[in-house]
Design a protein around this nucleic acid. Sequence first.
RNA 1: UGAGAAGGCCGAACGGUCGCCCGGUACAAAAUGUGCCGGGAGGAAAGUCCGAGCUCCGUAGGGCAGGACGCCGGGUAACGCCCGGUGGAGGCGACUCUAAGGAAAGUGCAACAGAGAUAUACCGCCUGAUGUAUGUCAGGCAAGGGUGGAAAGGUGAGGUAAGAGCUCACCAGAGCCUUGGCGACUUGGCUGCUAUGUAAACCCCGUCCGGUGCAAGAUUGAUAGUGGGCAUGAUGCGGCUGCCCGCCGCGCCCCAUGUAAUCGCUGGAGCCUAUAGGCAACUAUAGGCGUAGAUAGAUGACCGUUUUCGACAGAACUCGGCUUACAGGCCUGUCUCAAAAC
RNA 2: GGAGAAGUACCCAAGUUUGGCUGAAGGGGCUCCCCUGCUAAGGGAGUAGGCCGGGGUAACCGGCGCGAGGGUUCAAAUCCCUCCUUCUCCG
Length: 112
Amino acid sequence: MRREYSLRRNKEFRYVYKRGKSVSDRNFTLIYVKTKTPHLKVGFSVSKKLGNSVERNRIKRRVKEAFFSMLDGVSKKCLLVFVPKEHVKEAAFEEILLSVSRLLRQAGLLEN
RNA sequence: UGAGAAGGCCGAACGGUCGCCCGGUACAAAAUGUGCCGGGAGGAAAGUCCGAGCUCCGUAGGGCAGGACGCCGGGUAACGCCCGGUGGAGGCGACUCUAAGGAAAGUGCAACAGAGAUAUACCGCCUGAUGUAUGUCAGGCAAGGGUGGAAAGGUGAGGUAAGAGCUCACCAGAGCCUUGGCGACUUGGCUGCUAUGUAAACCCCGUCCGGUGCAAGAUUGAUAGUGGGCAUGAUGCGGCUGCCCGCCGCGCCCCAUGUAAUCGCUGGAGCCUAUAGGCAACUAUAGGCGUAGAUAGAUGACCGUUUUCGACAGAACUCGGCUUACAGGCCUGUCUCAAAAC
RNA sequence: GGAGAAGUACCCAAGUUUGGCUGAAGGGGCUCCCCUGCUAAGGGAGUAGGCCGGGGUAACCGGCGCGAGGGUUCAAAUCCCUCCUUCUCCG
């Protein structure tokens, strides 16, 4: 279920970085591209500067968890990349939920 | 009781709701989806510092070059690792640390200082001549001064013109004999009187080493793309020229590069227990166990209980070590020192 | 995941081969002067180099400092070991 929604190859990431627009707050930068076909894909790119591999995996899991909990409301016609920032490390889960939904709304991808 | 020393172990647990990765199975099956069952990170998974397996390339065999290791004996698939011992250094001690072969095979280097740096005579000391301004000349000496990291064994006594292993005692070193030991080494004795340091400088001696790292490599499909080459193979087409030889161009071909999937991918020098051998590392035998395999890369969110909310940190082909990071806690009828009591 | 390379003053750096008057060349920089109506560019002259301590707080003197910590050596930026950081290459 989750596999089909994920960005796979480095090529796909590069495509999003090149063509995408971005919105950000203190926790994330969200880079997005609107597409014509309805196939949603998401990637999570955590910089090595944010910590060691344990810390980076933890950030990725928490952000994934937050995003997939609101999956039903998100438009299917887009490609997304979340880039977490330093501040996420101390953030509570509710704060992550809040800023994910705020960024999606800013990008105009959240329906309802 | 206080202060230490040594060795070993653990490194949050349990329950509930939703969710992730792999395998098996049932149902529907084109893709896959759903249900059930089972499994799912570490003592360092880390650094990539050594040693192997495995892979492809190279290779008759041997040598040179280059690199690694270096007290002795043993263990191991192997090692730069481990165990036991020897010498040295530190500690009152339990004990710890130790790149620890050769400087008497040869070469290089040792700045500055100092008279002199592997050899010497500046200040000196002594004798003789000359001479009386206590200097000059010739010879002897290396004890004292000064410089330096280092100045031709050290300390004391005898000896002497002054001195010197010149002689003697003790200590240190070298060679020979000898006691014990497989050996490093050690016990005792004799001889002679000395030989600066540096080999983590070149080097000598002994032992070992081909390169490459799973992004290795293999298979299948797709594209028959892009760049280069006509050296080789094959002689298909065109040209020089009507034919043969020859030459040139294109294509087959050869080389490089580019895309996807599958395999490699986990059962291995494996782990646990018992017995036997060994001081030990470890080995042998018997019985038992089945223990991640992802590919943008699997453990989270919320809640409850355990009084304390908890370190360093995430497998990526696999093993054996080393090194580095680490909250807190536990174990040993272990050992040492100090004080007190018996 | 694997294979390498580098780290020297505020910046760019030479020196590491063959250890020694190298706190460390040189350039940028900074200060002053010339040029110009003024500036930039250009030309000329000069200058301190970091931290700690002592000094009239000036000249100057001593110690430590070449990514960090150990070791070899009389002596280490240089030789050896361990660790840290940055960069490059391999599909």
